[in-house]
């Protein structure tokens, strides 16, 4: 396995569409729930332990060889908001394109064939990690980090937040991210043997509700 492949996959410039998604930050900024670095940090922390954990566990499970079709259904059940399900599938499809160009693999081709309109992004991420020769932990780290780096980058653009402050937020979250990834990997690795019910299902009600509000805006900067 190539550890450097993890850097390629986790790079914020990996062309898989993430730059156009704020992870709910655009709605939270407009609603006044994110106003600066402190509330961005609280927002990211909430994301990390809810959708971040679920995404990381899904990615770990996919990387560990669990059935991606079952994982995709588990992701649907853990994502009540149709706007977020749609965003996750669009991002999955965009990631699929980049992944197949970067690490051609039969498993990626099969997944693309199974989900022509895209599987949930963390599932594609886990299969991509496999194709890149990475493991469950690598996949979980990628998913976990994306769950907070997206909103942090978006808030730099939305509030003109000092980018050094936003980066400081991400750095402060790193120890929590490590612990969360351990949980996600343990759950993800258990899936091939025990089924998808062992996956965490942590939810952030305001992320789901906010995503529906955002989807109804006539004018927005970010896709989600």
């Amino acid at each position: 396995m190539s550890r450097a492949a993890l850097l390629v996959l986790a790079d914020g410039r990996f062309p898989a569409g993430g730059h156009a998604h704020s992870g709910g930050a655009e709605e939270a900024v407009k609603a006044g729930r994110i106003t600066g670095a402190a509330s961005l940090e609280a927002f990211c922390r909430g994301r990390l332990h809810t959708v971040g954990l679920v995404g990381a566990a899904l990615a770990a499970a996919a990387a560990a060889g669990a059935d991606p079709v079952e994982l995709d259904a588990a992701a649907d059940a853990r994502t009540p908001s149709p706007a977020l399900r749609g965003a996750a599938r669009r991002l999955g499809r965009q990631l699929m394109r980049a992944a197949r160009a970067a690490w051609p693999s039969d498993e990626l081709d099969a997944l693309a064939g199974e989900f022509p309109k895209g599987a949930h992004q963390p599932v594609v991420l886990g299969v991509t990690a496999r194709a890149a020769g990475l493991g469950a932990q690598d996949a979980a780290y990628c998913a976990a980090y994306e769950s907070v780096s997206g909103p942090a980058t978006a808030v730099v653009r939305l509030l003109s937040l000092d980018p050094f402050e936003a980066t400081g937020v991400l750095a402060r979250l790193a120890p929590e991210l490590d612990l969360m990834v351990d949980r996600a990997v343990a759950a993800g690795r258990a899936v091939p043997g025990e089924g998808v019910d062992v996956l965490p299902a942590a939810s952030g009600p305001l992320l789901e509700i906010g995503a529906e509000a955002h989807a109804g805006w006539p004018v927005r900067l970010f896709a989600s």
């Binding site: 062309p15 993430g18 730059h19 156009a20 965009q94 394109r97 978006a154 927005r220 900067l221 970010f222």
Partner: peptide, 17 residues
């Protein structure tokens, strides 16, 4: 296509959307 406040990114650096 939504561009996350960066239209040039969507046409040049990350064209996936």
């Amino acid at each position: 296509v939504e561009t996350g406040a960066c239209p040039h990114t969507a046409i040049r650096d990350d064209i996936s959307a």
